[in-house]
Amino acid sequence: MILALTIAILVTGSVYLIQQRGMVRIVFGMSLLGHAGNLTLLASGVGAWRGEPFPDRTPLDVAADPLPQAFVLTAIVIAMATTTILLTLAALGRDDDTDVPEPADDNIAADPVATLGRAAGNGGK
């Protein structure tokens, strides 16, 4: 139950943060969601058994389920990669404000970020 409460707090925080303004804050929210997911995975291994899964030093009747731990390791590392990418996206551009107004009608070629028209006039070099 305590674990469920922890997960619930993480999910609440995460959902609140991802509705805020500013990429960095949303990234923190996703980070919390990742934590919640990891704890859920560990909880699925039934937290009544908490011995470290080393058969040579932990008796079998208290050893924890090793499979969710492997899952969580994979998930943590993938989340690290994704968080780094998200932070890069937050650092690029004008700023990290996510409440972007959509321009009414825009001349696409007049933006330094637009890459269209690369192949124009040269037969697609």
Binding site: I18, M23, I26, M30, L33, T82, I85, L86, L89, A90, L92, G93, T98, V100, D106, I108, D111, V113, A114, T115, L116
Partner: peptide, 19 residues
């Protein structure tokens, strides 16, 4: 690569797919 909104589109894409 893409249009003027590729960064905004990229941010939304990453966040939704990550979620």
């Amino acid at each position: 690569s893409g249009t003027w909104a590729r960064l905004a589109g990229g941010r939304a894409f990453v966040l939704v797919n990550l979620a």
